[in-house]
Design a protein around this nucleic acid. Structure first.
Length: 593
RNA sequence: GCUGGCAUAGCUCAACUGGUAGAGCAGCUGAUUUGUAAUCAGCAGGUUGUAGGUUCAAGUCCUAUUGCCAGCUCCA
């Protein structure tokens, strides 16, 4: 929850519940050491260091104890203490983490305060409800157990975190739980079991998805979209190898700054080769392959490039986090004067794509470097210049964003498009980066009109991100019901009885011959069953044909998810469909406009 | 990678405190020929993730291992 909400009733309820939870845990695990226990967007959590871990079966027990504590109406009392007194008190309870926290707070000259309720007390700045009776009866539920590092650093101890859901009323809690349940239904991994987009097999390796025919259709359609758009945007297409000699990644700085995320090298003939984690070094080499003049700029090199990154095993998740990925990558080499305009063009391209998919639930993050983090190329002046350029461009297009330190690429600031997946986890869907560092490292130059050598500015951009993540998002965004142009199967022809199979088949073949992805349901199932199967398949267009249609050479057209249908001439249907596909229209969002 | 949990047929799930695996859907075969969400009947499908161990007996208990899930850390 935001700091600004601290005085809201909801904040107090959640914060107080965290204390009640800690009290309940201490009842069953008296030696528990307390960590942090803040309110969060959906409720609260509390971290504990336990000698004997809690198991999911403990949650109902804890919940029962919490309800009991609430009923006794414990009063929350506030008290401020000097550091020595506070540490003494904490020491008596053997709360070593809290002592560390108290010392940190004191070092920052913050007031040390505690809250007591009943037998429990906690180092805490509040605020809380007056008494535990102010916590509505059924407004909370313990949710899950998880691990969490003390102070969020993997160098520290792993503690056990208990998550709880909490709202102002029981009804709000129920609504939240139902919403979450519905969201789970859209999980791309869940929809995948039904619609077969991809497969991750143990034999091939984790994080290395196999794209099945249905998923490949979506990939190919996205690629087609990107190629057409980039062609019109003046990009040139290139293609580069998946493995590369060590030296290139030394030059690029990937080995010093990014090696943790790279697969270990292959050794051959006395040299070391790496799988590429990004496409940029290769594009830079293409830039370098011939002398460049200012007349060549902006030079826009585009590639759907496949990269490999050694993500930690616990981070892999379906298609959202993988180890082999194909990026909608391009690098724009331009002069300083051109940079802002090029950056703006790229931002507009993002907007254009997001509008096409009807994606509106995202926020933009300006990811900046952090000093002395060791993760960023050490060129303070260039960073400053790049940040200024990006900020100005963003202000000019008037797109709101939030700046976050420490999230930049190692070679420059980024504008990331942040989206949340169905489970509520935030991910970067697209990215745009301004890079003043690489051109220098690679010795990229162009001859300007002054007949002198200059260094170009580079813009890295991936508005469609990677196929893996973007397709995962689209599956969840559309809930598996894709618009016609993206749908693995665009049309299903359904004869009402086998007597019309022949007519249905002629339509099917005719559409197929026009490059429409079509199939026919000539099974022996009842008509009702065929309609049901078609609905479950989420095929966007159904063509129903029977005696009437056959006699008139017409089709009855029904959209997925609707009851309305229209009967029209087959040729007319085909024209409408082809136009819709060509224009990549989603009739559902078009209707809303 | 770390903490916790889970693993039974293609999918969703069953099998009491250990007694030798069962259903629905999907699939296949046959009958049915149907105008908007499940026609009927039959058949087939599993060394219970893998490897050890305890036991007269293991899906069930123990150990290891692999994979998956949630979270932390990390990121397109």
């Amino acid at each position: 929850m935001k700091k600004s909400d601290t005085n809201s009733n909801l904040y107090k309820i959640r914060h107080s519940l965290a204390h009640v939870l800690a009290q309940a845990v201490l009842e069953i695990r008296p030696d528990a050491k307390l960590g942090f226990g803040p309110p969060i967007d959906s409720g609260f959590y509390y971290d504990f260091d336990l000698t004997e871990p809690l198991s999911p079966e403990d949650l109902p027990k804890l919940e029962k104890r919490m309800r009991h504590i609430i009923k006794t109406g414990q009063v929350f009392e506030h008290e401020e203490l000097e550091q020595t007194q506070m540490v003494q008190l904490l020491n008596k309870d053997n709360q070593s983490y809290k002592i560390e926290q108290a010392e940190d707070l004191a070092a920052n000259n913050e007031t040390l305060s505690l809250y007591r309720n009943g037998p429990f007390w906690d180092l805490c700045e509040g605020p809380h409800v007056e008494t535990t009776r102010d916590i509505p009866k059924n407004c909370f539920a313990l949710d899950t157990l998880a691990g969490a590092y003390w102070k969020g650093s993997e160098k520290n101890n792993m503690m056990q975190r208990v998550y709880g859901l909490a709202f102002e009323t029981g009804d709000e809690l129920k609504i939240y739980q139902e919403k979450r349940r519905l969201a789970m239904e859209r999980d791309h991994r869940k929809l995948n079991t039904k619609h077969h987009y991809f497969s991750i097999s143990e034999e091939v390796g984790k994080g290395l998805p196999l794209w099945l025919p249905n998923g490949t259709v979506i990939r190919d359609e996205l690629e087609k979209l990107a190629k057409e758009t980039e062609f019109l945007g003046g990009y040139k297409r290139v293609s580069t190898p998946h493995i590369t000699r060590e030296e290139l990644f030394q030059t690029s700085g990937h080995l010093p700054y990014y090696e943790d995320s790279m697969f270990p090298p292959m050794e051959m003939d006395g040299e070391r080769l790496f799988l590429k984690p990004m496409n940029c070094p290769h594009h830079h080499m293409i830039y370098k392959a011939e002398p460049r003049s200012y007349r060549d700029l902006p030079l826009r090199l585009a590639e759907y490039g496949t990269c490999y990154r050694y993500e930690q095993s616990g981070e892999l998740a379906g298609l959202l986090r993988v180890r082999s990925m194909t990026m909608n990558d391009a690098h724009i080499y331009c002069t300083t004067e051109q940079a802002k305009a090029e950056f703006i063009k790229v931002m507009n391209l993002h907007t254009q794509y997001y509008k096409l998919f009807g994606l509106s639930d995202f926020w933009m993050r300006l990811s900046l470097a952090e000093e002395n983090a060791g993760k960023f190329v050490d060129e303070p002046e260039l960073w400053q210049k790049a940040e200024k350029l990006v900020t100005e461009a963003m202000d000019e297009v008037e797109i709101p964003y939030e700046a976050v330190r420490g999230e930049a690429a190692f070679y420059g600031p980024k504008i990331d498009f942040q989206v949340t997946n169905v489970v509520g986890r935030e991910e970067t869907a697209s990215t745009n980066q301004l890079d003043l560092v690489m051109a220098k490292r690679f010795g990229l130059t162009y001859i300007a009109s002054d007949n002198e050598e200059h260094t170009p500015i580079i813009i890295h951009r991936a508005p469609l991100g990677t196929h893996e993540r973007f397709v995962a998002f689209l599956i969840e965004h559309y809930g598996g019901a894709f618009p016609t142009w993206l749908a693995p199967v665009q049309v299903r022809v359904i004869p009402v009885a086998s007597a019309f199979n022949e007519y249905a088949n002629s339509l099917n073949e005719s559409l197929f011959g026009s490059f429409v992805r079509t199939e026919i349901d000539d099974s022996h199932d009842s008509f009702g069953k065929k309609i049901r199967s078609a609905a479950i398949s989420k095929t966007p267009n159904l063509l129903i044909v029977g005696e009437n249609e056959q006699a008139d050479q017409t089709v009855t057209w029904q959209r997925y998810g609707t009851k309305e249908r229209q009967t029209l001439d087959f040729g007319a249907f085909r024209n409408l469909l082809q136009e819709e596909i060509l224009q990549r229209r989603d009739w559902r969002t078009v209707a809303q406009d």
